[in-house]
Write a protein that binds this DNA or RNA. Structure first.
Lengths: 330, 330
DNA sequence: GCGGGAAGTGACAACGTTGTCAAAAGACAA
DNA sequence: TTGTCTTTTGACAACGTTGTCACTTCCCGC
C-alpha cells in the first residue's frame, strides 16, 4: 500500500480510501491510484484490515461438521457456502469425526483466526466452553443437533416425528415385528430417532422386543454385521427401520446377501443417492440438508447484522419417499 | 494480551513468549502468565500474529473445488484436511461450479486472507493470473486437472489409460459397438477421457461411429436423456462407457427405464457409493480421490517447508472394479 | 475581496502481535 | 568484593491497514 501510494504520489490513506471505495476521492486521483495498484499488482490485506477496522470483522465463518466428506454434512456445507459467498464471506470447514475434543480444537482454531460466526454440527455434550466465544461477539448457530448447556440458535430436523411416521408406515403395511438399527446413542439425533421408534411402537400397542433393536452401529460394516446377526436369530423382524444413511446401506447389503431384500421391508432415515435404482428402491424418511444449511446461514448472518432477539429454534421437516422397500408386506 | 500482562505484572513481550512457548522464560513467571490468561480467558489472535511474524504465515490454506458437496471433491477435501490438521493448518474451501470467474474470485478472496497455500481443482483455462500469487510466496498445487499456461505441481488421475482399459475390457467381452457419454469437453479430464475412448477404439481397429458418442452432458438428467435418445435410434450400441459418476447414474437410470440394464454392458468412470448393490452391480474405473488429495497436500506442505525443486507431476492410478454390468456380453 | 462551507487530502495513532536489542538480574570464578 | 558471562526481562518499533481529525483547496454568495 505504501508503494502504491508512493507511485501514485498520494498518501496511503487515500489509497485505503480508493481500495475501500469510500466516497470523497476525486475521480482523477482514484484513477491514478487504481493504475498504480494495478501496476504493482497490489493485493489488499484483509487480515491487517480487519485488525484495524472498528468492527473487527474478518468476513470469514467457521463450520464444524461431522465429516466434510459425508453426503449429509457436505450438503450442509454447500448450502452454507452459497449464502456466505453472496456476502463476500468465506468458509473455514473442519471435521469433528464425532470427537468432542476435535470439535473444541476446531472451534479454538477458528476463534484464534477471529471468524465472525460459527455453524456447528456438534459432537460434544457440553458447550459451555463456547460462552467465552459468544461473549467475544462470535455468532453461533447449531445445526442437526442441539447444543448442551448453552442457549443458542438451532436448526434441526424433526427426528422423532420422522421416525414415528416411518414406523406407522410399516405398521400400515401389516408389520408388527419391526426391527430398529441405530447409530451411536451418544449422538443426539440418533437418540431422538431411537426415541421416535420406541414411542411409535408403544403408540401402536406393539409389545416392545429388545431383541429387535441394535444400537451404536457406526458405519456400513457394523450395520451390515448387526443386521446379519439379527436375522440369524429368532424372532426375526418382518421389517427394519434404519436410523442413518450408512446404516441403511449396511442393512440393505445384509438383506441382499441373505436373499431377503424382497421379503423384508426396509425404511431408512436420510435419503441416499441411487436409492431409487436399487431393487427394490429404498423407501426413506428424507431430510433436507440444503434447507437446514440455508436456514442456519440465514440466522447466522442476521445475528451478524445485529439481531439480538432471543434464540431461534427452527425445525426442518422430513419427508417420506416411498420407493418399494417400505411397502413390502410380511 | 495487554490485560494479561498487566494482571501478571509482566511486559506484553513476556506474555507473547509464554503464548508461543519460547524458551527462556522462568517457570514461575510462565505460571503466572498462564494463570492470568486463563482468568481473563485470553484468546491468541492469530491474524495479528501472522501480520507481525517474519514468515507471515497464516496457518491456513485455500482449496478450490468443483463443488464441496460433490462426492469426488469432498473426498479430496477430507484427505487434504487430514494432512493439514496435523500441522495445525486450517482449510478454507470454496466451490467453483466449473465457472472460471468463480475460481478467480475464490482465489482472490483466499489471497486477500493471506493463505499460505492453494490447492485448486481448476475450472479455468488460463492460470497466468496465479503468477502474481506465486511470486508473493503462495504455494500452489493443482489436483484432478492440470493448469493452463502455468507451470505448477499437479496431482492427476490417469484418465486416458483408465478409459482405454475400460474400452479394452468391453472389447474383451465381445463388444464392438461401444457408446461413449462424456462430460463438458471444456473440462480437461472429460476431454482426456474422451481421447482415451477414441484412442482405444482406434487401437482395437473398430470403425469409429460418431452416432455412438454424446458429449457435454452435465448432471444426471441430461445424461439420462442422452442415453435414452441414443437407444431410440440405430445403430444401438451393445455397451456404454460413461465418463463421469453422475453420467453413469443417468445412463443406468435410462437403461433401467428401457429394461436394458441386463442386456447392455456398462462401464463407468469414477466409483459410486452403492454401485455394488445395484443389479447388476456397476463395473467402474475407480479413481482414488483420497490418494489424490493426500498427495497434493503433501506436495503443498513440502513446498511450504521450503522445497524449491522443479514442479512435480504425480499420477494416481485408476483401478477397474468389476461388478457385473461391464461383463455383460452382446 | 472576503467569509463561509463543502470537498478533498494527509499526518498520525492505533489494532494485537512479535523481532530486535538493550538492560537488569543472577551465577560463578578469582 | 569485583568482573565476566549467562539468563531473564522489557522498551520500542514494526507488520499493513483504517479511524480521527485537522489542514488545504475550491466554490459560492455577497
Amino acid at each position: 500500500m505504501r508503494e502504491v501510494a508512493a507511485l501514485a504520489k498520494v498518501s496511503i490513506k487515500t489509497v485505503s480510501r480508493v481500495v475501500n471505495r469510500e466516497a470523497g476521492v476525486s475521480p482523477q486521483l482514484a484513477r491514478r491510484v487504481l493504475a498504480a495498484s494495478e501496476r504493482l499488482d497490489y493485493r489488499h490485506n484483509l487480515t491487517a484490515s480487519s485488525l484495524r477496522r472498528s468492527d473487527g470483522r474478518s468476513a470469514t465463518i467457521g463450520v464444524v461438521l461431522e465429516d466434510v466428506a459425508n453426503p449429509f454434512s457436505s450438503a450442509l456445507h454447500r448450502s452454507i457456502e452459497d449464502i456466505a459467498v453472496r456476502r463476500g464471506v468465506l468458509v473455514l470447514a473442519g471435521s469433528s469425526d464425532e470427537d468432542e475434543e476435535r470439535e473444541r480444537k476446531l472451534v479454538s482454531a477458528f476463534a484464534s483466526r477471529r471468524v465472525d460466526g460459527l455453524i456447528i454440527q456438534p459432537a460434544g455434550h457440553d458447550h459451555t466452553y463456547l460462552m467465552a466465544e459468544r461473549k467475544a461477539g462470535t455468532a453461533i448457530v447449531f445445526v442437526d443437533r442441539p447444543p448442551a448447556f448453552l442457549d443458542a440458535d438451532t436448526v434441526l430436523a424433526d427426528n422423532v416425528a420422522g421416525v414415528r411416521r416411518g414406523v406407522r408406515h410399516l405398521v400400515a403395511h401389516g408389520h408388527r415385528r419391526i426391527g430398529y438399527l441405530g447409530d451411536l446413542h451418544t449422538i443426539s439425533t440418533a437418540a431422538e430417532r431411537h426415541r421416535g421408534y420406541l414411542e411409535e411402537i408403544a403408540a401402536q400397542k406393539i409389545k416392545f422386543d429388545e431383541r429387535l433393536v441394535r444400537l451404536d452401529l457406526r458405519g456400513i460394516e457394523r450395520a451390515e454385521a448387526a443386521a446379519r446377526e439379527m436375522f440369524s436369530r429368532s424372532p426375526r423382524p418382518t421389517a427394519l427401520l434404519t436410523g442413518q444413511n450408512l446404516i441403511t446401506i449396511g442393512a440393505f447389503r445384509a438383506l441382499r446377501q441373505l436373499g431377503l431384500h424382497r421379503q423384508i421391508a426396509l425404511v431408512g432415515f436420510d435419503d441416499i443417492l441411487l436409492a431409487d435404482l436399487l431393487e427394490p428402491g429404498i423407501t426413506v424418511i428424507a431430510q433436507d440438508p440444503a434447507a437446514i444449511g440455508r436456514t442456519a446461514a440465514e440466522v447466522l448472518f442476521r445475528r451478524l447484522d445485529g439481531d439480538r432477539s432471543p434464540s431461534e429454534h427452527h425445525t426442518v421437516v422430513t419427508q417420506m419417499i416411498t420407493r418399494g422397500s417400505g411397502e413390502i408386506r410380511p
